[in-house]
Amino acid sequence: MTNISDLVTRAGGVFLLPVAVAIVAFFLIGVPSSWLTLTIAGLAMGMMIFLMASGLSLVFGLMDVLNFGHSAFVSFGAFVAASVLAWLSGWLGSPSVILNSLALILAIAAAVVFGLGAGWFFERVIVKPVYHDHLRQILITMGALIVAEQMILAIWGGAPVSVPRPHFLEGSIIIGDASVEIYRIFAFCLGAAVYVALHVLLNRTRIGLLIRAGVENREMVEALGFRIDRLFIGVFMLGSGLAAMGGAMWAGYETLITPALGAEMMIIVFIVVIIGGLGSIQGTLLGAIMVGLFANYVGFLAPKMALASNMILMMVILLWRPSGLAPAVK
């Protein structure tokens, strides 16, 4: 038993879970083409959720701040990107890949810049006065989410907003008998690129080292001569920008968004952060991929269970590992 356990640990440990889930799903689904489509959809969904959740995990881990308003950045990111895409609809419909790409890059960049600015304002005005007080954090950030939702209603109205996709990301590619949406492949690649960038930032730079240390013991980081509150503003803004990027990608994925998007995503984002383990980017990625795969497989195999699938996943994982799959602090 010990040998098997050591072997599993050496091969990747909990990071093999998505592979195990995919293998089990392969036999349960029985049709390879459906399995491939669902797997890629799950991975793409997981990567978009990872973008939304990674910042929250760091903020939670670094400063012990429960920010229920985090998904407001997702909503704003989605609506800002939708507006930019609508404004550049001429470029989107063009057969030119360059114009298509430019429109997409501008939309995502606008969402991220908005997220960074909104994150700075949110941290300074809303979060800073309630450090070290969880009850007030929950109340005021929940309130901020409601205010954000109403602001979206006031600016964009209550009707669902359709989100045009760039021409070059429309359609599917055929792999064997499986049809895979190009947008999902793009979402997966973007999420993977952001993960690699975050990994490099956290593991190859001094700022990253400070963030990782701060997640474990912020008091000790200060006793070594660093102002963790200044670092926190940067992390908060980064997290907000990533959430807005995730929102922008999600808008293109859903193609129809409503002001309730933030509240809907809040639950999923918190589930991912909790099952992944606080303060851990690897854990957040693992949690997001698990949620994405699980939601797609269960939605196919047992549609009536689809809504509850994330909750069930969280319960099972927390019963097994109460601190989450890969928490930053062991």
Binding site: A213, E216, N217, E219, V329
Partner: peptide
């Protein structure tokens, strides 16, 4: 003074729980 400023004056602290960063 802020803890970080005190540390930069040349005072180091080894707490009872050691305060090491386990993940590093």
């Amino acid at each position: 003074m802020h803890t970080s400023d005190i540390a930069r004056l040349g005072i180091a602290y080894v707490p009872e729980n050691m305060g090491i960063f386990g993940g590093l």
